[in-house]
Amino acid sequence: MNHLEEQREHLQMQTDQAFRSADEIEKICDEIWHHANTIHLYSSLSEEESKSITMKEKQKVIIRTIEEILNIIYKYKGDV
Rank of each mutant, 00 (worst) to 15 (best):
E49Q: 13
H35A: 15
N71K: 08
I53V: 13
M1C: 11
D16Q: 07
H10A: 09
I28D: 14
R64Y: 12
I62T: 09
L4I: 10
H40F: 08
A18T: 05
Y76T: 10
D79W: 05
I62G: 01
M1Y: 10
M55G: 06
K77H: 07
E48N: 08
S21C: 04
T38I: 08
D30E: 13
A36P: 01
E5Y: 07
H40Y: 12
I32V: 08
A36T: 03
I72H: 11
Q12I: 06
S50W: 00
H35V: 11
L41T: 12
W33P: 02
D16G: 03
D16E: 13
L41P: 04
H34L: 10
R20P: 03
L70M: 03
Y76A: 09
K51L: 07
Q17E: 15
C29D: 14
A18H: 03
Q14S: 08
Q14E: 09
E48Y: 11
H35I: 11
L45Q: 15
V61P: 03
M13R: 11
T38G: 08
I73Q: 00
A36N: 01
I62P: 00
H3G: 14
Y42E: 15
V61G: 13
I66S: 02
Q17N: 11
L45E: 15
K51T: 11
R64H: 14
Y74H: 12
H34R: 13
I53M: 09
F19P: 03
S52D: 04
I53D: 14
E47F: 10
I72W: 11
E31I: 03
I73N: 00
L45F: 08
N2I: 12
T65I: 02
I63V: 04
R64L: 11
E68R: 12
V61M: 08
S21I: 05
W33R: 06
I53W: 07
T54A: 10
Q7S: 13
Q12V: 06
Q12L: 06
N37D: 04
R64D: 15
I63A: 01
L11N: 12
L4G: 15
K77Q: 13
I66D: 01
S50Q: 00
R20G: 04
S21D: 15
K51R: 14
M55S: 11
E24I: 05
N71V: 04
E68K: 13
E31W: 05
I69A: 05
N37Q: 05
E47K: 12
W33I: 05
D23N: 11
W33Y: 14
D16W: 02
Y42T: 15
E67M: 03
S46R: 07
S52W: 01
T54I: 08
E57K: 12
H10C: 06
E49I: 07
L11Q: 05
S52C: 02
I63Y: 00
W33V: 04
T54G: 05
D16S: 06
V61W: 04
D79F: 04
